[in-house]
Nucleic acid binder design. Structure first.
Length: 275
DNA sequence: GCATTACCCTGAAAGC
DNA sequence: TGCTTTCAGGGTAATG
């Protein structure tokens, strides 16, 4: 389940392998992802185009092409980009092949659950793409300050867990890192946002950044599907305090980690440490 | 404005 | 052992 650290790791690992290379051919599975894959549109944007840059915004990857088009990709739950030999056996759930003409390689998009998406935008229009226009600030970027967070919290009355998952408030957090950040900030996932004061907001701000930066240092969290652009799994799953640890001892106080369901997603937390 | 629910999908795990 | 059912989850849309 790729969140900000996983998508950023994919971008960092793909960049040196792809930037400067030319796509010569495109093929799709014909099966729809979250949004239908438009092979004609994809081919027009990609074929003969050089990959100029790879960027991440929230959980989205942007592949900038010399055709002045941009591929906007989301990995959903189980999507991954893999570089492979053109002769390598084609795996199940292979949905897109971008053939790189120079070295017998291709970039593959594989996605068993098909919750991901790849759409094409003109370079000048991608900023206004509906997927990106709604995103809040990136938690690792400058606009995400304690002041911003406090202001946003005061403007809402939702459970803090739900608030942090809302990509229009903060872009890039998912279930794992929200649970981990709330644990680190010692805030209950059910606490209403408007009851969080300046001190706690600052603690939460710091916790979000720490949790994400540590996950990045470990190259992301792999539970099942996630691998980076070099095909390597992450290592952060060995450093989680609460996520997926229901019934195990809290790393801080020894109380059993509890689980509750919010918005049809599991929340893991320490009922003693988090208030 | 916000909560809830359904939907998309597959594979692992649980239940029988 | 083998089959069926349930569950997980990111994002979106419909509904209340």
């Amino acid at each position: 389940m790729p969140e900000l650290p996983e998508v950023e790791t994919v971008a960092r690992t793909l960049r040196p392998r792809l930037v400067g290379r030319t796509i010569t051919e495109v093929e799709t599975s014909g099966l729809p992802l979250r949004a239908p894959l438009d092979e004609t549109c994809l081919a027009r944007a990609c074929e003969g185009a050089r990959i100029e840059a790879i960027e991440r915004l929230g959980k989205y990857l942007l592949v900038h092409l010399s055709s002045r088009e941009v591929l906007l990709a989301h990995l959903g739950m189980s999507g991954r980009f893999v570089l492979a030999s053109q002769q390598a056996l084609r795996p199940a759930h292979l949905h897109v092949r971008l053939v790189l003409g120079d070295e017998d390689e291709e970039l593959r998009y594989i996605d068993p659950r098909r919750f991901g998406m790849i759409v094409v935008y003109e370079a000048g229009e991608v900023g206004q793409a509906p997927e990106l226009a709604v995103l809040g600030p990136d938690p690792l970027a400058e606009p995400f300050t304690p002041g911003y967070l406090l202001g946003a919290l005061r403007g809402s009355r939702r459970d803090i867990k739900q608030f942090l998952l809302d990509q229009s408030q903060v872009a890039g957090l998912g279930n794992i890192y929200v649970c981990e950040a709330l644990f680190r900030a010692q805030i209950s996932p059910r606490r209403r946002t408007n009851t969080i004061g300046a001190k706690r907001a600052e603690r939460l701000h710091q916790a979000i950044r720490e949790v994400l930066e540590e996950a990045l240092a470990h190259r992301g969290t792999t539970f099942r599907d996630y691998v980076d652009g070099a095909g390597e799994p992450g290592g952060n799953q060995f450093h989680l305090d609460v996520y997926g640890r229901e019934g195990e001892a809290c790393t801080a106080c020894g109380t059993r980690v509890a689980r509750l369901v919010q918005g049809a997603r599991s929340t893991f937390f320490c009922p003693r440490c988090q208030r």
